[in-house]
Nucleic acid binder design. Structure first.
Lengths: 160, 160
DNA sequence: TATTTATTGACTTATCTTGACCATTTGATT
DNA sequence: AATCAAATGGTCAAGATAAGTCAATAAATA
């Protein structure tokens, strides 16, 4: 299967960060775009979709002459850090898709194991089935309940 | 009597996974549907009914350009005996106390890890709270629902 | 016959790519 | 200083592509 340009750029930036002692890399938007044969704004798309705070990254930039884009990977000091990261990422309401995406993300970053993800998905699916089939809960409310269960499970995981 | 399309697709995906070193396969929904001469949404039905988390599978997907569906099996050996052991121990109905005792027992025998037990307990308590507070489910029914959720979660673990 | 499972397709949502236009910073020239 | 040109990066929306949802039927099974 062919990789998207977005994925290639993502992997490239991620590898540069991993190689870096300070988990930081500085880029030139224009050069990077040229290197991958895409328009400059594609770089912004990659940053927005892959290196967002909920993915554990910070991005700084400056325009004009000597402009730059700096991407930093955040590290967690203790489990409370992880807990608040989870809470922030989940929020008060979350769709099925967003939840699955978050879990994939957390697993890729090794914040949770595949088995732990499996257990969470089973629990979410169970609640979803019941809410939809038995109790006839509105989609709006189901999103809220999903966020609550997800937060409970991931929080207990991080603290336990 | 011929095999249903669902069964054929299930077997096909399962065989691809088995062949794969990492127990993982990436698919194009549209191509797969074409290959089996069905509508694309049939693939979703197969995934939902056959490759569910409670069966030990994880599914990731992405829409849009360069979209894909990835199916992973966390199973590496035949665990049918463990699964039936769990099912037998749980039964069709189980109280809160019995469930907790069972989980402690399984953890002591190292059939599950402490974190896995924690996740199951959080999910059970969540369902219990909702059943009692929001939906006003009878204790009798709650015991049945507890057995169902417990079975699903432990089954997925045993397979995984 | 009643219930569960499978099949279909119309409609919805998400993701990637591109390009036109906007904003900020630097530095050279008045 | 004040101004302007050059060099960067940012935003947004349109178009193409691909997957997801849901509910109506049909088929199979209890």
């Amino acid at each position: 299967m062919s990789l998207s340009i977005t994925k290639e750029i993502e992997d490239y930036i991620a590898s540069l960060i991993t190689e870096s002692e300070a988990q930081t890399v500085s880029l030139r938007r224009k050069d990077l775009a040229e290197q991958f044969g895409c328009v400059p704004s594609q770089i912004n798309y990659v940053l927005r979709s892959r290196f967002a705070p909920e993915n554990g990254f910070l991005v700084e930039s400056q325009r004009g002459g000597h402009g730059y884009i700096r991407v930093m990977r955040l590290t967690f000091k203790d489990c409370d850090d992880v807990v608040s990261h989870f809470s922030d990422a989940i929020g008060l309401s979350i769709t099925e898709q967003e939840a699955r995406r978050l879990l994939v993300n957390f697993q890729n970053r090794e914040l949770i194991t595949p088995k732990e993800r499996l257990l969470v998905e089973v629990a979410l699916r169970n609640q979803e089935d019941q809410g939809k089939t038995i109790y006839d809960i509105s989609p709006y409310k189901r999103d809220i309940m999903r966020a609550e269960l997800l937060t409970k499970m991931l929080t207990s995981l991080a603290l336990g």
